[in-house]
Nucleic acid binder design. Structure first.
Lengths: 357, 357
DNA sequence: CTGAAAGCGCTTACAG
DNA sequence: CTGAAAGCGCTTACAG
């Protein structure tokens, strides 16, 4: 049962004006202005050669007609579509929707639009690849810790510039990430300095550079202090995986005094599982995450973590992409940007003034 | 410090083959096959008039060249772009990313691609509207409880078919939603039948049909049983809003025996705030949500809720959209689909067999 | 400062 | 069963 239409249409009048009219084109405008379509085209893009008078009259008409240039026609001749393909991986991890929300306006700021190629952690289908090619996308952005090799190959093969975000690139490609190694190492040091000696690790997906680097960062801190890992469990980068990992750690009687989760969403699962087992955070066990997703600051979690420098990562990603759209011969580049420690209540940390830079 | 390139490029050979070659076109293929471009075009789209022999040789060449038709050129003549604009509202509510993940493959299944028009609950900027027009999008999908009037007007004005999901439409437009009224009413009845009499409400954004309908559904159940609301707080459809609302309810000494949150994300905030105040769920207070996002089944929340029939909603949304792309003169339509009760641990509910249909 | 012409890569009547 | 021609809406040398 539909619950009925609401409100009346305030804009009926305004809508009526243009309804049913064919959309205007350079031709429509050129006829009304009494000039050639070349002149219209030039005036519209601010070519300095067009006289102020002609330009103004063309602009006025265009505005009046609600003219929008046909991007398809334009890109046919300019060989630039203004479209970038977007792959978003593990969207169940709030890090990605949060990234998407901030990425989109920054793309727009650089006159780029995003076409969705793939969403979610499932395998890329051939349709994604086809549309990348069919729509003549100028470039491709991969936001995912796991997906990439297939689409990376396609981009290489067809010379579509591509940048990965939240990954480290293999040869040829570009990628931008947080300095995961440094962030994890700092977290590890501060845990140890605060007296933790039985540190358990919950890893993300193996074979992702993000997880690997964070694990290595922690290991570096541990071996610097001659401490060895109490346990290591695979948490698959999901809440459920973190929850299960913590349950296992508890059941096996490992009694860690700290659990280092490779990302926030797993850390949340860890905390919930620990509490369920009657343990207090951080009195009995310290828990740390990584990413600083919004939920990390929910009072229930109050998670100590490293904030990824998302805005800076986005800007650098777009720099790299645009440079390569300009000049596809540029070599691949990996950029890693320092994150920022967020001290919260889920972990007892050394109070030492710590900088990640 | 970038941590270095990894792996070697397994596909160097394959990549080398096509690198640097111009992409092939109908013209490339027609020359190699010794036929006209018309014939190539027809063969490629399976026109029955082309002889099997010609067709096969053309198809073979196309495959060999990795041919992908230029969608820009095609849409210039067909007046169909195969692109729909996508507006995603409150992406901080996991309901939307989860919807997006399921929507995207279903769009692909109908040969449609999604271009992002807007992400997040901020106001739509003019750029979104411009790109809708410039890229000749065939239609537009609005997934948002709040955004819409501006883009709705534009779509009406330029005759771009549009369907809203998770909303009820005003005149002219189409919308698909869960039967929010019936779902909320059922939840209310089961709470009352289980003995709750001091029921507090945490609303979403006012002026959204989703929130209004759920509130009305609850009210209907209450007035049927001569129960009146103990309190009503605005929760802004966010976790933080739900948290604050529950804190206020506790501080004002309202002592509800149940809190009905208009959606899951607010219910999660409510639960965390209640526990913080030392209350047990559901022994002291029952809490219900709506949507059945993934986090609702996390053990920490174990939230009793109504699952939105997301897959059915998506299919109907696409039906409506495609019908109107075919025939824009079709009248607007509101569809509401029954949700499904999820009995979990956060609320004491009457055991009565309840159906939402 | 402006215009005529060609062309981007397709599709589609119209002929044959 | 196949091809020549026109055209979708732009932009851009090339002329003037």
């Amino acid at each position: 049962m539909a619950r009925g239409m609401r409100k009346t249409d305030d804009n009926a009048d305004e809508n009526a004006r243009n309804v049913g009219r064919r959309r205007s084109t350079v031709r429509t405008i050129s006829e009304r202005a009494g000039v050639s379509t070349s002149t219209v085209s030039r005036a519209l893009k601010g070519d300095r050669r067009i006289s102020a008078k002609t330009r103004d009259s063309i602009l006025a008409i265009a505005r009046e007609e609600g003219y929008a240039p046909n991007a398809m026609a334009r890109s046919l001749v300019t060989h630039r579509s203004g479209v970038v393909g977007l792959v978003i991986g593990e969207i169940g991890n709030p890090f990605y929707p949060e990234l998407l929300e901030r990425l989109h306006p920054r793309l727009a700021a650089r006159s780029l639009r995003a076409m969705l190629l793939h969403v979610g952690s499932g395998p890329l289908d051939e349709g994604a690849v086809q549309s990348l090619l069919q729509y003549q996308m100028d470039g491709c952005l991969i936001a995912s810790a796991t997906l990439s090799s297939r689409i990376e190959d396609i981009c290489l093969q067809y010379r579509v510039p591509m940048v990965m975000i939240n990954r480290v690139a293999r040869v040829h490609s570009c990628a931008v990430s947080c300095d995961n190694f440094a962030g994890a190492r700092l977290l590890g040091e501060l845990l140890i300095e605060a007296g933790h000696r039985r540190i358990a690790l919950v890893t993300g997906q193996s074979n992702t550079s993000v997880s690997e680097d964070r694990v290595e960062g922690l290991q570096a801190a541990l071996s610097d202090h001659g401490v060895s890992l109490t346990a290591s469990c695979e948490g698959h980068s999901t809440y459920a995986g973190g929850f299960a990992a913590a349950q296992e750690i508890v059941e096996r009687g490992l009694r860690p005094d700290a659990i280092f989760a490779v990302n926030d969403i797993m850390a949340m699962g860890v905390i919930d599982a620990l509490r369920r087992a009657g343990l207090r955070i951080p009195e009995d066990v310290s828990v740390t995450g990584f990413d600083d997703i919004q939920a990390a600051s929910w009072p229930n979690y109050d998670l100590t973590t490293v904030a990824q420098p998302v805005d800076a990562m986005i800007e650098r990603t777009l720099d790299l992409l645009l440079e390569r759209i300009e000049d596809p011969s540029r070599p691949g580049e990996n950029v890693s940007i320092h994150g920022e420690l967020r001290r919260r209540g889920s972990a007892r940390l050394s109070g030492r003034t710590a900088s990640l830079s």
